[in-house]
Amino acid sequence: MYEEIFNYIKEKICELGFEENEITENSGIRSDLGLDSSEVVEVSLKIKKDYMLDIDLKEDMQIKDVVNKILEGKQ
């Protein structure tokens, strides 16, 4: 499940124009990948649509934090 959601997040971020090989679970959304505020909103909207979850994505999060938030939300 973790892997599946991680791959989903990777896919959504790649759709925004980022390279897949840049994205690891430890990548900081802002600090490493450099997503701007609008891109963070877009990822959260995708999660809302596909997982029916309202996740408050913070720019200082890492990818694994996002995955874990989704996992928590699904429980």
Binding site: S37, S38, E39, V41, E42, L45, K48, K49
Partner: peptide
């Protein structure tokens, strides 16, 4: 067709 909250963040710009 979706909802108010689903409007994309680039609409404004």
């Amino acid at each position: 067709t979706q909802s108010y909250a689903m409007v994309n963040p680039w609409q404004a710009t």
